[in-house]
Amino acid sequence: MEHPLLFLSLLLEALGLPAHGGKSALAQILAPHMQYSYLAMIICVILAWAATSNMQIRTPKGLQNLMEIFVDWSENFIYEQTHDRKKTMIIFPMMTTFMFYILVANYMGLIPGFMSPTANLNVTLGCTAISIATYHILGVRFHGIKYIKHFMGPIPAMAPMMFPIEVFSHIGRILSLSIRLFGNMVSKEILLGLLFMLAGPFLAPLPIMILGCLVCLLQAFIFYVLSVVYSVEAMAGAH
C-alpha cells in the first residue's frame, strides 16, 4: 500500500528511524499515528503553557482570554450536569483535557502533510478505555461494593442471566463511543484522498474540507458530552 505524504514520517526516516510502522517495538512506538498523537500532545502542552505563562488578572488578552473562555464554558457545562462543586472538580480537569486533545488532533488532519491521530482505531479505543475505566472507578468510589448491583438487574434470581446482558450493553456503549469518532475521522480522510486523486487537487475537495471543519468540532463535542454524562451517571445516587 502506498503511504501518504507525512512530514513527520519523512523527517524521522531521514534520521534513520523506522517511521512507517512495522513489527519491532521501536517501529510500533514510532508508527505514524503515534507520531502525530505525540505532536498533538506537544501542541496542547505548549498552548496551555503559553496561555498561563504571562497571566494578567485585570485584563486578560489574546490566548489567555481564549483559554479562559474555553475552561469557563467547560466548567459551567459540567456543573449543569452534576449540580455539585466537589463532583465537578473531580472530573473537570480530565474531561477538559480530553476535549482539548481530541479537538487539536481532529483539526490537525485538515492541514496537508499531517494526519489525524484519531483516524486510527487504536487511539480512539485508548481514549475510550481511559474514560470507561474512570467512570467505573468513580462508581466504585461513590457507591462502594454496592456498585455491582447496577449489573445485576432488578430481580436477584435473574442475576446470572442479566449479567452477560449488562456486560454486552456496556461493550456496545464503549464501541459506539470509539467507533463513532474513528469512523467520522477516517471517512473524512478517505473522502478527501479520493477527491484529491479523482477530481484534481484544487477546488474539488473544498466542500469536504468545510464539512470536515464542522465534523471535527462536532465529534470532539460528542465525545466530551458522552464521557461527562457517563461519569455523572456513575456518580449519581442509586436508581
Binding site: F168, G172, R173, L175, S176, L177, I179, L226
Partner: peptide, 9 residues
Amino acid sequence: TIALAVVLS
C-alpha cells in the same frame, strides 16, 4: 448513540 449502541452490542 442509540443507533450505534444497539447495533454494536
